[in-house]
């Protein structure tokens, strides 16, 4: 299996700890990841808010590159990129006219051969069987697994996990000794698309999420999406304004939690980069 790695812009910028922790966990488990050469931005929310063609064309270039570079699958840790790449692949396969236009715009065709996997799928398929022997100490904490919207929806396109009350992340957390809680905001949107332009709304939506996790006794929120992470971690001032009582609940990437269980250093996992300090071991 030749797995390509598409970090996307966030993992090279604001969320570089996600990048670091994905690579660190993969390396620790002996899994090889090769970054797609010369990749470009997927366009994210902005592109599909402004132009359908552009929103398909940007991911199409990435997919065409991956295909040319001989990858069977591409790991896309960023949930937003994962969503955009998956939707674009779906649109290209479904709409011949669009595929032709996009192919011409990009200057490369994509034939649909590359499988797009998110970090949870990747971990389940490649890492889960390797974990038992490698865990140094259990990540024995009550955690709220937060999937957000982009990993599970649109379900017909992504076909990943259960639409309401997904379980894959909960399963991974149990595997490293954590106790995932049953809570109500697993797949509710945190408002990432408006993070900069309507911080007020993002504060409110993210406050609902953190408030519920805290109220139900979670010690940390675990995420698999850099948008969710930067909202829940960096927008804490705005969030706390919307909560009756401010919260300092930390927000971890799933790979950071696994990394801790594998005994990797906090620095290797980029934990020092968080705005809200992570004290959990």
């Amino acid at each position: 299996m030749n797995t390509g790695f598409y970090p996307g812009c966030s993992l090279n910028g604001t969320s570089r700890e996600y990048n670091e922790s994905v690579r660190a966990v993969a390396a620790e488990l002996g899994l090889k990841l090769t970054e797609i050469d010369d990749w470009n931005c997927c366009g994210a929310t902005a592109a599909h808010s402004m132009s359908r063609e552009l929103s398909v064309a940007l991911p199409a270039r990435v997919l065409a590159l991956a295909e040319r570079q001989g990858f069977d699958e591409v790991l896309v840790p960023c949930a937003s990129c994962y969503n955009r790449l998956s939707v674009a692949a779906h649109e290209l396969a479904r709409d011949e006219e669009l595929a032709a236009k996009v192919g011409a715009a990009v200057g490369m065709a994509y034939s649909g051969k590359v499988r797009i996997v998110n970090v949870l799928q990747y971990l389940q398929e490649h890492a889960a069987q390797l974990l038992p022997g490698k865990i140094r100490h259990n990540f024995a904490h009550r955690v709220a697994c937060y999937y957000g919207c982009l990993l599970v929806r649109p379900h017909k396109v992504l076909g990943f996990d259960r639409l309401e009350d997904p379980q894959s992340m909960d399963g991974m957390m149990r595997a490293i000794g954590a106790e995932p809680i049953d809570w109500a905001f697993k797949t509710e949107c945190c408002g990432a698309g408006l993070s900069v332009s309507r911080t007020d709304l993002v504060g409110k939506l993210s406050a609902n999420i953190l408030g519920d996790a805290r109220d139900r006794g979670a010690e940390a929120v675990v995420v698999a999406c850099p948008m969710c992470h930067s909202n829940l971690d960096m927008r804490r001032t705005a969030i706390n304004k919307c909560l009756d009582e401010p919260t300092d609940i930390p927000v971890l990437y799933i790979t950071q939690a696994i990394g801790l269980a594998l005994g990797l250093s906090r620095k290797a996992l980029g934990l020092q980069r968080h705005i809200v300090e992570v004290k959990l071991q």
């Binding site: 910028g13 402004m50 063609e53 715009a105 200057g107």
Partner: peptide, 26 residues
């Protein structure tokens, strides 16, 4: 915290290929 790049990351040809995608779509 090292979350911001001082200089932009660029593609090999300074983004000409991507610029072309923009020219052909939006």
């Amino acid at each position: 915290k090292g979350k911001l790049n001082i200089v932009p990351e660029r593609l090999k040809d300074n983004g000409d290929k991507v610029g072309r995608i923009f020219a052909n779509t939006i």
